[in-house]
Design a protein around this nucleic acid. Structure first.
Lengths: 127, 127
DNA sequence: TAGTTCTAAAACTATTTGGTTATATAAATG
DNA sequence: CATTTATATAACCAAATAGTTTTAGAACTA
């Protein structure tokens, strides 16, 4: 799996409330499929399917204990996802502060020379 | 939209590489639909659909400049998503360090009394 | 060995998703 | 006013998703 595919799988896995609840539960410790299924108004196979999605994304791993397949949360994909989010939040913040500076300059400009900036100045760059 | 529904929409929006690329581009500043579509091997309506998904998740807002509908990134949903991830990473870390302590204890125990811990001790809790 | 427990797989269904092409609408321009 | 430009909408399609019920298999238990 490429890094992009890993993000696809991770974010897709996180986009379901049942799966987020499962992860929340697993953050407290290992649990079996039936234990995980218990709070939900859905069949055991449905929960097994959700676990498969989480496993495919690397968010959950399983061991074996008798008939049970205890699930445990794996944190690495969550870290990758957080890193992606943080990177673009930082980019955005950098851009935002530049925009902020620009707006300050425009305001100063407007004070000395009224109407020098047209409302549709946005369009001038790519025309 | 409930907070859970917002997370659904945000994570689902982030689960597509095209949409992540669009957000990456928008982190650098506003752009029109055609500008956003340009790098992608897909039609303009396809990009418009992706933008609709991003807009529904609150990750993108649009203004109007002549015929154009400049898109801009909105950071709040990304913050909520990051917060969710961080919360469960912290929970997991807390649990992990407790597990760590437990393992230390077991190791010390094993040193004084060999074989006191069976491999299937996992099953003993819920039986 | 027979029965029970836990989990997975199979087969099916309805809905959603991500794309297409063709068309419509809105605003600017000649 | 006719044309061009930018975007959205409609209608369609294939594949994926999220659920179901039923069945199978693996491991313990009496």
């Amino acid at each position: 799996m490429t890094p992009s595919e890993r993000l696809d799988a991770t974010f897709a896995a996180l986009a379901d409330p049942t799966r987020r609840a499962i992860l929340a539960r697993l953050a407290l410790g290992e649990a079996s499929v039936l234990e995980l299924a218990e709070p939900f108004a859905m069949s055991q196979p449905a929960v097994s399917k959700h676990l498969k999605v989480l496993e495919r994304a690397g968010l959950v791993s399983r061991s074996r204990a008798a008939q049970r397949r205890p699930c445990r949360i794996e944190i690495d994909p969550l870290t990758e996802a957080t890193d992606w989010l943080e990177e673009y939040r930082k980019l955005w913040e950098a851009n935002f502060s530049r925009l902020d500076t620009l707006l300050e300059e425009l305001k100063a400009d407007a004070a000395s020379q009224v109407s020098s900036v047209q409302p549709n100045d946005f369009t001038t760059k790519e025309d």
